[in-house]
């Protein structure tokens, strides 16, 4: 149904395709509108290459002197938003981070990648997925956003929740774990990576999309872009200023190391391997 996107751009097709949407006539401009704005979530997390350590007293994770980066899935989300804009299907890409002020650094990187504007929502306490979702909801309203692309998962808390919660609060569709996104006629056709394979769904816009690893390969930031990014607007606000009440309800009591596996053995050859397997009653 949406396979015709290689033809005229979905927003400026002058003659609406009667076959795809019997309700869209020339006086129904909604379906062919170019999107104004895409919001993208940018979470600051410990770099995925860092070996994470637990504080000896179990009160948290060691972050002092540890390399911080944009959550990898958020880079993918941003890359997708930039490609949509560069195709001419959206006007502006706005990146948002909620949390410690230090995340301005990641927002600057996002601006250097190509985002137009950044919003830093300061909050020193732990930001729960529901709080983050409520912030995005507020910003959708303020910014009149048409599409929100988040990462499927923040690799620190591994919650995998924010996009779904936002979609529920916004009463709009969600397309999570996206590995392919096609926009046409005010709809998104999304291929999702699920346990059983690849699932394709179609949702009306506006909607929330969450990016999986294979959606795209994010671009590298070039030096001149870093300089240019310094002049791009970065607004700083706070939960309070936005009028968002933090929503807790789950207390993080203690952090511990996982149980290690007992030390294994090395064998010299395939015979040794077979013997070791048989030893353990596995074959």
């Amino acid at each position: 149904m949406l396979t015709g996107i290689s033809g005229p751009r979905w927003y400026n097709a002058r003659v609406p395709d009667q076959r795809t949407d019997p309700h869209s006539g020339p006086c129904k401009p909604k379906a062919n509108k170019r999107m104004q704005k895409i919001l993208v979530g940018i979470k600051r997390v410990i770099d995925y290459n860092v070996r994470v350590r637990v504080k000896p007293d179990g009160s948290g994770i060691v972050t002092d002197g540890v390399k911080m980066s944009i959550n990898p899935f958020d880079e993918i989300a941003l890359e997708e938003a930039l490609r949509i804009k560069e195709r001419g299907d959206a006007g502006e890409v706005v990146v948002v981070s909620i949390g410690a002020d230090a995340a301005q650094q990641q927002l600057r990187t996002a601006l250097a990648m190509g985002a137009d504007r950044a919003i830093m929502v300061k909050e020193d306490a732990e930001v729960s997925p529901m709080t983050a979702a409520n912030v995005f909801l507020k910003l959708i309203d303020k910014e009149s956003a048409d599409l929100v692309i988040l990462g499927k998962q923040a690799i620190d808390d591994d919650n995998i929740q924010t996009g779904q919660m936002l979609a529920a609060l916004w009463q709009r569709p969600q397309a999570t774990f996206a590995s392919k996104l096609e926009l046409a006629d005010g709809k998104a056709k999304v291929t999702r990576e699920i346990d059983g394979g690849l699932e394709v769904i179609e949702v009306d816009l506006p909607a929330v999309i969450t990016a999986d690893l294979r959606l795209n390969e994010p671009r590298y930031v070039k030096l001149p872009d870093i300089m240019k990014a310094k002049r791009k607007p970065l607004d700083v606000t706070s939960l309070q200023e936005l009028g968002v009440e933090p929503l807790g309800g789950i207390t993080q009591e203690a952090f511990a190391l996982p149980e290690g596996r007992s030390k294994g053995i090395m064998v010299d050859d395939v015979d040794g391997l077979v013997a070791a397997l048989k030893d353990r009653g596995l074959f």
């Binding site: 997925p129 990576e193 699920i194 309800g249």
Partner: peptide, 23 residues
């Protein structure tokens, strides 16, 4: 905590106005 559950339960939690415990 399959892709089915990860997709669905957070949406349920939000409708109920609570945060969700994952995994």
């Amino acid at each position: 905590s399959t892709t089915f559950g990860k997709d669905l339960l957070p949406r349920v939690a939000a409708l109920l106005g609570v945060n969700q415990v994952s995994d």
